[in-house]
Amino acid sequence: MRIPKKTALILGLVVLLAAAAIWTLTRPSQAKPTASASVPVKVVSVIQQDVPRYVSGIGSVLSLHSVVIRPQIDGILTRLLVKEGQLVKEGDLLATLDDRSIQASLAQAKAQLAQSQAQLQVAEVDLKRYKLLTVDNGISKQTYDQQQALVNQLKATAQGNQAAINAAQVQLSYTQIHSPVSGRVGIRAVDEGNFLRMSDAQGLFSVTQIDPIAVEFSLPQQMLPTLQGLLATTPPAPVSAFLGDDGHSGLLLGEGHLTLIDNQVAAGTGTIKAKAEFSNKTQKLWPGQLVNIKIQTALERDALVVPPSVVQRGLDNYFVYRVKGSGVEVVAVQMAYQDSDLNIITGVQAGDVLVSDGQSRLKPGSRIEVLGETKVADRQSAMESKP
């Protein structure tokens, strides 16, 4: 059956109207505009506490006494009485040299002294006799004077013999090498049986004092007044030595005190050298070792303390984001002191809540959502435990 054109057009129009109605009823509704989303941040509270101030530098560990053991006479090394790395005390016998020739020279000098003393004894007896004979002119005055001169000559000879004995005894003492300091024996350079000479620059080995020990370091010349004040305190200012970073990640090697400031500033570098002395019973500090040193220069009382991540740097000053209701406000602050663990600031009050993370998305008046707040007690405990 054939449908007329007019009827077909009417049916098509009806279909289009129905489809439009269905689409209008079923199309997704547009989302209504919402208020600006809150910025997620982390916050901390401003803490008021006493904070020590420190200055840091790089130093080199030095022994207070280090001696290269060398012979004082030529001779054969007969015995080594210490081992490499052994700890010795001042006066300990370290080595001996062949002393036979010196012993013979000493015995010869003693024999010559005995001979001179015997001759002197006879000459003094004759002098007494001649003196009695001169009373009644039994002998001439010339004979008496000659005997007196002989006695004087023999006395001088005996004194020369005694000096030879003393010299031989000194030479004999050089055949026994004693430690001039207390310390640790280094690597041995020669073995027993070698012929040693006084001109040998190498020596037998070295003895280096390990405890106590010193650290020499340099600081900018601007620190000179501070160092002078620290040296004048009683007791002197404490100094800590670290291997690696001087913070929590560094290994504390020892704690000592400031002992010396150099007598001049290095003109080329604009620095001043200083020295600190350390007790080193555990031998963690070793001569020649490079260490980081930290000196407490002052104690800031009732300081306002925040973590370094809180303070932001503007074009002209420092600022922080302070929580105000459900939003934040910008507060200009002054940086009184800073290090890797904390900043001391002014311009806020103790207990103020400041943004510590998420500042990049903030602006004055921004709404915030606090994700987590650092526990004040935990952070304060961590700061107090900092060396």
Rank of each mutant, 00 (worst) to 15 (best):
A149T: 11
V181Y: 08
E192F: 05
H178L: 11
H178C: 04
T157Y: 13
F195Y: 14
Q171P: 02
Q176E: 08
E192L: 09
Q146L: 15
R184P: 03
L196S: 03
A189I: 10
G160K: 08
R184S: 12
S173K: 00
L196G: 05
L172T: 01
Y174P: 06
K155V: 10
Q162R: 09
Q148Y: 13
Q169G: 00
T175R: 00
A156H: 11
E192W: 05
Q146D: 13
Y174M: 04
I177T: 05
I177P: 02
I187F: 15
V190Y: 11
L154K: 14
T157G: 14
A164R: 02
G160P: 03
I165S: 01
A164H: 00
Q159S: 12
G183L: 07
V151N: 06
V151G: 13
K155N: 08
N194I: 14
P180Y: 02
N194W: 13
Y174F: 05
I187C: 12
G183R: 03
A163S: 02
S173Q: 03
N152D: 15
L196H: 06
A164S: 09
R188C: 11
G186P: 07
A167H: 06
N161V: 04
T175C: 06
A156Q: 11
P180S: 04
N161E: 04
F195I: 09
V181H: 05
R197L: 15
Q146P: 10
A163C: 07
V151L: 12
Q147V: 02
Q159H: 10
S179R: 05
I187P: 09
A167F: 05
Q162G: 07
Q146G: 14
Q148R: 15
Q148V: 12
L172Q: 02
N166E: 06
E192S: 12
N166R: 05
Q153A: 13
Y174I: 03
E192R: 11
R188P: 10
N161H: 04
A168Y: 00
L154Q: 12
T157R: 15
N166T: 07
R188S: 13
I165L: 06
S182K: 06
A167T: 08
A168W: 00
A149E: 10
Q153I: 15
A163I: 06
L154D: 07
V190G: 07
Q159K: 11
H178Y: 11
A167I: 09
A156T: 08
A168L: 01
R197F: 12
F195V: 13
T157I: 15
A149M: 10
L154Y: 14
A158T: 05
Q162K: 11
H178M: 10
K155E: 08
N166L: 03
Q146V: 14
G193A: 08
N161D: 04
A163Y: 04
I187M: 13
R197Y: 13
N152R: 15
A164P: 05
R188H: 13
N161G: 10
A168H: 00
G160R: 07
A156E: 08
A167M: 06
F195E: 10
I177D: 00
V151I: 14
I187R: 14
T175A: 06
V185I: 12
Q147M: 06
S179E: 00
A167E: 05
P180W: 01
